[in-house]
Each structure stands twice: as structure tokens, then as C-alpha cells.
Amino acid sequence: MNRLLVSPAPHLHVRTSTASLMRDVVIALLPTVIVSILFYGWREIMILAVSVVSCVLLEYLITRFLLKRESTVSDWSAVVTGVLLALNLPATSPWWMVLVGAIVAIGVAKMTFGGLGQNLFNPALVGRVFLLISFPVAMTNWGPVQGFVGNADAVTGATPLGLAKEGGVAAVSSLDYLDMLYMNIGGSAGELSAIAIIIGFIYLLARKVIRPHITLSIWITVFVFSGIMWLADPSVYTDPVFNLLTGGILLGSVFMATDYVTSPMSTAGGIVFGIGIGLITMLIRYFGSYPEGVSFAILIMNSTVPLINKAFRNKKYGR
């Protein structure tokens, strides 16, 4: 007879693993990736390829040769970082810039903290913000880029938020919300289609990869805050629907604010975190010098997560 296996209870385990969760995030990103490839064509394929390959390769090299540990690339987290970084860059980005972004994201933001689970800031966002500060011109060069559908001119020019910053509300009054739902007039790959991101969001919820509280609290905060400002003075402040559908709010709130590692543990903490991101984003958009502030907002709130985890905890039974 074979020897019996003995271990402490519980004897069953969920089928999900870190790798399966991360793989689900990649799957949820696919609609957005497909849309971005359709609109930005070969350039976007190049950016995605450089970003994903360099992220995975860097993680492999660093874990194996610098940290001398078992490689952790099989957990798919480097792929997620790679895809998110690519979706956060303009389609005009040169390959070396993508590579620099990947080095900062994986090398600095992730591995120096000890790898997956230890990092304080979302790696893809750190990569993006590093590039934004280092190469401000390249990072706001929105075209023209020839895609597989439509002509290049349709997706060329400044982002709606950029237009609003430059020319005020009047400059964006001609924009149609339907266009924003399907595709934006300009912006980084991940900002193109709200529909694609929402499909990904629904997939993540259905697969129970994430819970909706962080994302929804960001949306509600952005909507309410911009709604109040817009009602107060519609000639100065852009309207709430515009603010929800443009820029990185959707991509950021669905895929980056919900990053396990850098978001709070409790439900209440998650809601506070989301409100913080929504508020900071809108403050930057209305009053800051940058047209968009989601990346900064998420990074700033990332830094408060340890405090939020201490201050906002789930209710304990019988206490």
C-alpha cells in the first residue's frame, strides 16, 4: 500500500493561483490591446512587443543573476506590467524609450523592493511617470500614426484633456461622447476605447479577480466632484461624463488602481483609496499644470496604502 499523505486542514484549495489571476488580467486587457493595435497599427505592435519582452526578460535576468533566486516570470506579473506600460505610452514612442520605461518599471519599481508583492508603487505607472518627466515632449507626441482601420488623421492631434487644458471648455465642446466610448481622438493606446476597458472590467469581476469597490469609488468621486464644479461654472470646468470617458481614468481605475500589491486590503480602505485617487486626479486636471493626473493620483495614493491598511480595517466578529 502507498504511504498516506498527512497535512493540517484544510485539505482542499481553490484552483486559482497567482499565475492564473495575472493571466486573467492579461486576458481582460486583450480587448484594449486589440483596439489599440487596430488604430495604431505596426507601431503599437512594436511597442507592446518591446515592452512585454523587456519586462519579462529583465525580471528573469534580475531574479536569476542579481538576486540569485528562482525566476518568477512564470507568474505572469511581468507580462501584466509590460502590457500596461505599453498601453500607457503614445504610439509614437521610440523603442529605446519603451525599454527605459521597462527598466524603471521592473528594475527600479518592482525588483528593488523585493519583487512581486513587495513593491510600494505600481511598476507600470512608475515607468510611465519616469518617462513623462524625463521626455515630456516625446510623451505628449500624439501622432500621426497609421493604423489598420481609419485614416491616420482621425486619431491624430492632442488628447481631449490636452485640448481642454489649452483652450478651455470651448475647445472640446464639439466632441461626441459616442466617439469617446468607442475611440478617442488621441491619446495613449489604453485611452482609446472606453468600451474595451469596460469589457475587461466585467471579465475581471465575473472571474472574481477583483472586487468593484476601488474602481467604482474612483468613478463616483470623479463624477460627483467634476459634476459639482461643472454645475458651478460650466464655462470653465469640463463636464462629468467628459471627465469619466477621457484620459486614463478608465484604464487606471480598472487595471492599475486595483493592482493587488499596491492597493489597500480592506473594503473600507479600498473605498478611501479610490476617493483619494478620484479627487487628486480631478484637482490636477482642473488646477494643475498637467492635462492628466491619473498616474500621479494613483502613485500618490499608493504611498498612503500602508497607512490606510492600519487605519481602515474590516470589522472583526464580536468586536
Binding site: 504511504r3 498516506l4 499523505l5 498527512v6 493540517p8
Partner: peptide, 9 residues
């Protein structure tokens, strides 16, 4: 000799 296998932490 072992008589069973331990599979916990």
C-alpha cells in the same frame, strides 16, 4: 523508515 508522507508547512 517513513510510514506516511507529511504535506503541510
Amino acid at each position: 523508515p517513513k510510514v506516511n508522507d507529511y504535506g503541510g508547512y
